[in-house]
Structure formats: structure tokens, C-alpha cells
């Protein structure tokens, strides 16, 4: 890992228009604040884990960084270039530098194409001058790298298992030598044993190629295993961002505490003795988020001030940032 910052996201906001079904065209749409002011940095070769419960904006954040969604405000600076507002053609030249891996391994591969064609697609898009033989060579190399026999290039996705499909997805991301791979819950759909294989493959690849990873998951132990730093999202806001070890050892935000307390311990005795910190209520609607701190409605230690003033992300030293008035 070097110290060079490759990605700098600053106060990113992604809002969706929500209209009632059959509403008149002049009715003003309500804004769903899926991402509401997220800032973070990513260094070359680093792994940033993003955790949070369902609907907190993890995937939206990933797609917004990739410029696959319209961004309301904020900036995404990639290798010194601003990506927000870039036109399709200029954006395309950056797309080979950042690739993505998806949650459902089989659904992310076109069933009508052979895996050779699937993996060659980014090459065809970004290096159209490559000859057929060079392309084939490159595809077979990546397949070998991810541990799939290169002579299977003419097979179709449905002939592979879930874990193999995810490897093929990784091969597709790797084929253009990206500097960042965004992994959107790459192991949630896999068996536990296969999860380990895929995660270790990703870590080995990172060691080999120095690619940076943004790793989205809701499984905290997986994130702990792979990440250098972890970011905790809640309702489109960053709650806490810290080096993985520090975050798990000494969580500062009450929400992070609750999340970590909810991780099951694979030891029945300790699991029974564990104090569970339950949060009441459900996630509030992002259409109508609470005033002040978005977490205050479920926070065990909320005070009056939390409803009035939105806490800013504040550095508490050693790269540990937290958005809470009280910690």
C-alpha cells in the first residue's frame, strides 16, 4: 500500500425523485436521500470495507462512485480528475481503471455468451485494436489467475458453480488491469466455504497486482478479515470510519457498537454470556430522515442536542473518525 490517494469522495449526495404512482406531472417529487453527504478517501492498494444494514445506501454509494447514477451534489475525484458531470465519452476512458464485482454471480454473467466472450468484453471495449489471438491469450491468463482452467473458455455461465461464476466475474474485472475494484457484496450469495475461497482469492490478487478494493458487505467478520479500514454507513450518512482493528476493538459510535454486538460468536458459551445490545424500531424512512443525527431515534444515549444539530465527522486521532456529539 502506498500513500498516494487515488479516490477522494467529498460530500457526495445522491437523491432520488419519488413520486406516487399515477401522480400528475406537475406534482413535485419527494426526495429520497439515499446518500446524504458522504466523504472518504482511498489510497492505492488499500481495502476499504463498507458496512451497514440493508437499505443504508452501500450499493448506491458504489454506483455513485462509478458514475452509474446521477449525482445530486458533491465531488468524486479519481486520480486527480473530477468524475461528477463528466460526459459519457470521457467517463469511458476512466471505466477501465475502476471495475466492479456483483452480488449474484450467475446473474452478472450474460447467459447467452461464453465465459471467454464475457471476459473479453472489457478488452473489446477499451482495447479494440487488440488482435483476436492477443485477446484470447489475455483471457486465458486471467482465467488461470483466478483458478479456472483456461480450456473452459467456450463454456457458458450456467455450466459453472456459484463460486466459479464469481471467479469469472473477478476475471472480467481484472482483465483490463484496473486500479480499483468495487466489490458489491461479492460473497453474500455464496456458501461459507466458497466465501472464504473468493475472499482469499481477492486478497491474493491484491497482493499480486496492488489493486485497491472497496468491499461492501453486511457480514462484519468478512469485512474485518479483508479490510484495512472500515466505514459504517447508516441511512446514507457515515457514522464512523476507522482502521479495521481499531473499529472492532474499540467502536466509538453507538451504532457501530450495536452492529458489532450483533455478530454471532462461534462459541456457544461465550455467545450465551454475551450482552446483546438491541436497537428498537426499524430503520427510519430515508424519505423523511430524523432531524439532526439520523441515528438518534434508535440511539440508546441520544440527548436533546442530537435532534437539533447534525454531528459532523470528527477525527479522534489515529485516523479514527466518528460522527457523534457524545463520543
Amino acid at each position: 500500500m502506498s500513500d498516494e490517494t487515488i479516490l477522494k469522495v467529498d460530500d457526495l449526495k445522491v437523491w432520488f425523485d419519488v413520486k406516487k404512482q399515477g401522480a400528475m406531472p406537475w406534482v413535485k417529487a419527494r426526495k429520497l436521500k439515499a446518500i446524504d453527504g458522504v466523504s472518504f478517501e482511498l489510497k492505492a492498494g488499500e481495502t476499504l470495507g463498507i458496512v451497514g444494514e440493508s437499505g443504508c445506501g452501500k450499493s448506491t454509494l458504489a454506483r455513485a462512485v462509478m458514475q452509474m447514477l446521477p449525482v445530486e451534489a458533491g465531488s468524486v475525484v479519481w486520480l486527480g480528475a473530477e468524475l461528477v458531470g463528466l460526459d459519457t465519452r470521457h467517463m469511458r476512458s476512466h471505466r477501465k481503471e475502476m471495475q466492479m464485482i456483483f452480488q449474484d454471480p450467475l446473474a452478472s454473467l450474460n447467459p447467452r455468451m461464453t465465459i471467454g466472450q464475457i471476459i473479453a468484453e472489457p478488452l473489446k471495449t477499451h482495447f479494440p485494436s487488440l488482435s483476436g489471438d492477443e485477446m484470447k491469450k489475455r483471457v486465458q491468463d486471467v482465467l488461470d489467475t483466478v483458478g479456472i482452467l483456461p480450456n473452459l473458455v467456450n463454456r457458458y455461465p450456467h455450466e459453472f458453480s456459484g463460486g466459479q461464476c464469481q471467479r469469472i466475474g473477478i476475471a472480467r474485472a481484472l482483465v483490463v488491469d484496473p486500479q480499483l475494484i468495487i466489490c458489491d457484496e461479492p460473497v453474500s450469495a455464496l456458501d461459507v466455504s466458497i466465501q472464504a475461497q473468493v475472499i482469499n482469492l481477492l486478497m491474493d490478487l491484491q497482493k499480486e497486482t496492488g489493486v485497491a478494493l472497496i468491499f461492501i458487505a453486511h457480514d462484519l467478520s468478512v469485512v474485518k478479515h479483508i479490510s484495512d479500514r472500515v466505514m459504517v454507513l447508516y441511512l446514507g450518512n457515515v457514522m464512523e470510519i476507522a482502521p479495521a482493528r481499531a473499529l472492532y476493538a474499540k467502536p466509538m459510535h453507538p451504532y457501530t457498537e450495536a452492529l458489532i454486538a450483533a455478530v454471532p460468536i462461534p462459541d456457544p458459551k461465550r455467545e450465551k454470556a454475551k450482552q446483546i445490545m438491541l436497537l428498537d424500531q426499524d430503520l427510519p424512512s430515508p424519505l423523511d430522515p430524523p432531524s439532526g443525527c439520523v441515528f438518534r431515534t434508535r440511539c440508546p444515549i441520544a440527548e436533546r442536542r442530537c435532534a437539533e444539530e447534525k454531528p459532523l465527522l470528527r477525527d479522534t486521532g489515529e485516523d479514527h473518525k466518528v460522527a457523534c456529539h457524545l463520543r
Partner: peptide, 9 residues
């Protein structure tokens, strides 16, 4: 897979 293609550009 459509999303993957969009992400690839």
C-alpha cells in the same frame, strides 16, 4: 450483467 456492461463502459 447489463449493469456489469454499463460499469465497464
Amino acid at each position: 450483467y447489463i449493469e456489469a456492461a454499463v460499469a465497464t463502459g
